[in-house]
Design a protein around this nucleic acid. Structure first.
Lengths: 334, 334
DNA sequence: AATCATGGTGGAATCGTTTCCATGAACGGT
DNA sequence: ACCGTTCATGGAAACGATTCCACCATGATT
């Protein structure tokens, strides 16, 4: 009840105002051929009426919808926030709107969100996939133009991922160089790539792999804390932990503090993903930096350009040494 | 070139498969009246064909578009990420897609994004407004259903904001209680509400207000750092700083460290917005916690319900005392 | 001079859905 | 037995854009 909310003006009215047919208006505005005189008239009328073509009408006619969908596990996680920022940044330069959904690493919610996007006739989608590759078969069959980000779960879908193998290897080598032999990986579900890289790295360096050195958490902070605390409590023999993300790193620091495990004296910690607060933390955290924003940007480029899509883009990571890793002191703690 | 990308099935095909007219299909699927028999047939056909109504067609017909737009200054900022999470969480329960845009606190970019949203026929918008209220006149006249979040720049637009006045007052009182008299506010553009509350609080406590105790930064981390460093360098007389957001707080800690200003011995710091790392920081940061997620959720509710919209919702903040504020030692530092 | 190529232009079909309206059947009341 | 009411149903219009196609005028070619 706050105003007469003026009706949207259509191409028909512009045509009338310019004294031409609707086809001509459409042609002029789409850069088609027209005489200089009519072009002038149409442009003037459009400007005068502040005409904005309706994306609805356009998209209905041409079957292809503009806009791109983006599915991330958790927008609250700095890594995915930065990835999102990269996508938005690229999309903005193309003038394409981005619809964002949060999956919480739950395949069911993911499927539901995909359904919503398909209903909107979105045909371009960037996703950090939650489940395994099978789940994506229907979406792909539906003609969805999908690009995976951060994780690669199908070989037939283009993806932009950090160089997990190199990152993990760097981390493990660094820790091994400090004398650590019992190194644990604290990851979240869906990081099969990294876990594989981890066990491979352990094996290649001849370190013992006596079973459950890999612990998984779900997307929430609570779950991350529980996993970290469990690891520190039940495995007093591990002397170094690799956290597979900033939420997990945060949880590890918190849990260590709570359990009176000192970093790096009692256990060394190295965290995937460099975040601003890693430097502010006490102790400042040694991290494997990941180009989160670039990942998003490149994924958006891929999904927008759409032509000649390379199977995979791998972006380098970087070890940033701060103060959360130290040489091993004597034996295992406690 | 990766498949025959099957054509989307339409209501017409469902009608044909069910042996009824399109109108009947539409009616059944929208919950209109129909005989049990036909309802059965239609539902069966729709399920068999995996029919999904096209939002494009629907939205074109009914002039009201589903979906809501969300405009935030910086998705990388934990506060806005959490706010966004709240919006997405609420929107998901309504099955409404959310289109997100990043304004960077730039009114021009904001206007551009609004234009894009209008083109998409979005009629519902949640925004953290960058500019002043005037800028919103065209959007409102266009029939946009707007709700402001975090900042209130117009009285005639519903908004959901934290209780800035109480938050600032609490912070100032707490610092004054510790003996501080020269307190600075480090804010970002668009926080006029808080700055007003700050000067009011200063005045009400009888503290000196000798001019430029308020410093502004833009949305970027660089700008925040510059502002914080400038403040600490040029005003050795201030003994306490209130940072108006987590990015500003982070910048303040960083700048203090760089300039060898110790917290809380040399200056006390209190930060708006509680973030997970505030506890991990050295020293742990005393903060004014803001219900970022709730703000987003409530804003989404407001924009979705749409009826009887209250003029404003104010959500409480909370002082969380940690270790970044201390009593004043002697005189001004240095 | 008659015909053909050219290029600007507008009418009309189309996209997929909702909704108005007319139709026809069934049924109950007088 | 006839008429009026109710109800399910399907045809068709409408939403706003793009695009095919026919049309006409002009200029060039034979």
């Amino acid at each position: 009840m706050n105003g007469p909310t003026q009706r949207r003006i259509t191409i028909k009215e512009v045509a009338e105002a310019a004294g031409v047919g609707v086809a001509t208006v459409s042609r002029v505005l789409s850069g088609g051929s027209a005489s200089a005189e009519t072009r002038e008239k149409v442009l003037a009328a459009a400007a005068r009426l502040d005409y904005r073509p309706s994306a609805l009408g356009r998209n209905l006619r041409r079957q292809r919808t503009g806009g791109i969908g983006l599915l991330v596990p958790d927008i609250t996680d700095s890594f995915y926030a930065r990835l999102t920022d990269g996508v938005l940044s690229c999309a903005r330069s193309y003038g394409e709107p981005v619809t964002v959904g949060v999956t919480g690493d739950d395949p069911e919610r993911e499927a539901e969100l995909i359904g919503t996007l398909i209903e909107q006739s979105m045909d371009r989608l960037i996703a950090v996939p939650s489940g395994d590759g099978e789940m994506w078969a229907p979406a792909l069959r539906a003609g969805l133009n999908v690009v995976f980000a951060d994780r690669r779960v199908r070989a037939d879908v283009p993806s932009v991922v950090p160089d997990d193998r190199a990152g993990v290897l760097t981390a493990v080598e660094y820790l091994a160089g400090l004398g650590h032999r019992k190194i644990a990986y604290l990851g979240r579900h869906g990081q099969s790539q990294r876990v594989a890289a981890f066990t491979a790295a352990i094996a290649s360096l001849g370190l013992p792999d006596d079973g459950d050195l890999v612990v998984h958490a779900r997307a929430s902070r609570d779950s991350a804390y529980a996993a970290a605390a469990g690891l520190l409590q039940h495995r007093p023999d591990v002397t170094a932990v690799i956290a597979g993300g900033n939420v997990l790193g945060e949880a590890a620091v918190l849990a260590a503090r709570e359990l009176d495990v000192r970093i790096p004296r009692d256990v060394s910690l190295i965290m995937f993903d460099d975040v601003p607060w890693a430097e502010l933390c006490s102790p400042p955290l040694t991290v494997i930096a990941q180009p989160a924003q670039d990942i998003g940007y490149r994924a958006a480029e891929l999904v927008l350009r759409h032509g000649r899509r390379p199977p995979a883009v791998t972006l380098p990571t970087q070890l940033v040494v701060r103060a959360s890793c130290g040489p091993i002191v004597k034996t295992s703690r406690r």
